[in-house]
Amino acid sequence: MDVLSDVIALMRTGEPTSALVRWHAPWGQMFPAVPGSAGVQVVLSGSCLLVADAPASPVRLRLNAGDVLFLPHGHGYALASDASAAVAGPPVLPAGRPALLVRDTVGEPGDGPATVTLCAGYRLDPEHAHPLLRELPEVLHLPGGRPGVAEAVALLAREAQAPGLGTDTLLPALLDALLLYVLRAHVDDAGSPGGSSPGGSGWAAALADPAVGTALAAMHGEPHHPWTVAALAARAGLSRAAFARRFRQRVGQPPLAYLTWWRMTTAARLLRTTDTPLSVIASRSGYTAEYAFAHAFKRAYGTPPGRYRGR
């Protein structure tokens, strides 16, 4: 798997839930903070205003049909038809709801233009989140019409507005695809000459850097391989010293330190979600001896792998 695919697989627990909502102007809706979650909003038709009082800096955005928002840190925000609309409290959603809930505006609808949104929520595992997610801004906004994103939005709109056989499986997969397009666009924009981190530090810069990105892909694709700094440098097409310096500048830690973190993170996910024998997990994590793997895992998580699995 490549790095972005791994980030998606690592970040969430369970499947995303979603709701298709038709809003009738004037309208306003508060979406409260939900720690340990991430939100997605897709404007399928019409327009609305985003108001996000994020801790870092407030965000005010006018959103149009096709626009996509990703809010990765679980902070609260509001959507409204315009700045003068009254904002209602958080919606009350039924427990055990299906993958897609379809509803009209809560409360008394207005008689103005309609806006249709698809809102989705991901439950995150903050203890094991990839550092790429922690570096993301409070709000990622992709205007409609961006290649890849536009097609994903069109598929989501068609499936959400005319559900059929397999919708409960298709919607989570389409939301994952949309999220990958959002993160890919963020990496591409940040690493571009006019972006926020061309040649700088941070995960967007790391993934946009051909040499560092190649090394990261190698580590994620073959975590069991006995990688050395020299072998990773050769894969990246740089000298050992130049590669080690560039990797640390971009990622914030040495190559083998990140490799160990990734191996242990992968092992923890397998322990939590599968019945794979410890010997197999040790081998997949690059350890020929189970006791060496257990020692490394305990150093990383403070408990032996067998006890971690039982807990």
Rank of each mutant, 00 (worst) to 15 (best):
V3R: 00
V3H: 04
D6K: 06
I8Y: 07
A9M: 10
L10Q: 15
R12Y: 07
E15F: 11
S18P: 01
S18W: 00
A19T: 14
A19V: 15
V21K: 03
R22A: 14
R22E: 14
R22D: 14
F31T: 12
P32I: 10
A33N: 04
G36F: 01
A38K: 00
V40E: 09
Q41L: 10
V43E: 01
L44P: 01
S45L: 07
S47T: 13
C48A: 13
L49H: 10
A52V: 06
A54G: 08
A54E: 14
A56S: 15
A56E: 15
A56N: 14
L61Y: 02
V68D: 00
V68Y: 00
L71I: 14
H75I: 15
Y77N: 07
A78T: 12
A78M: 11
A80F: 05
D82V: 04
A83H: 11
A83L: 10
A86P: 04
A88Q: 12
R97N: 05
P98M: 03
A99W: 00
R103E: 12
R103T: 13
D104F: 09
G107V: 00
E108T: 11
P113E: 13
A114N: 06
L124S: 03
P126K: 05
E127C: 11
A129S: 13
P143C: 13
G144W: 02
G148F: 01
A150W: 04
A152K: 05
A152W: 00
A154N: 12
L156Q: 00
A160P: 04
G166F: 04
T167F: 08
D168L: 08
L170N: 10
L174M: 08
L178W: 01
H186Y: 12
D188C: 11
G200V: 09
A204N: 09
A204L: 11
A204R: 09
A204K: 06
A204G: 15
L207K: 04
A208V: 04
V212M: 00
A215L: 03
A218F: 06
G221F: 08
P223N: 07
A233Q: 03
A234T: 15
R235W: 07
L238Q: 14
S239V: 06
F243W: 02
R246P: 02
Q249F: 13
G252D: 06
Q253L: 15
Q253I: 12
P254H: 08
P255Y: 02
L256C: 05
L259M: 06
T260A: 15
W261H: 13
W261K: 08
W261L: 11
R263A: 02
R269D: 12
L271N: 00
R272A: 15
R272G: 10
D275Y: 12
D275M: 13
S285E: 05
G286S: 05
Y291D: 15
F293A: 03
A294M: 08
A294F: 04
P305L: 02
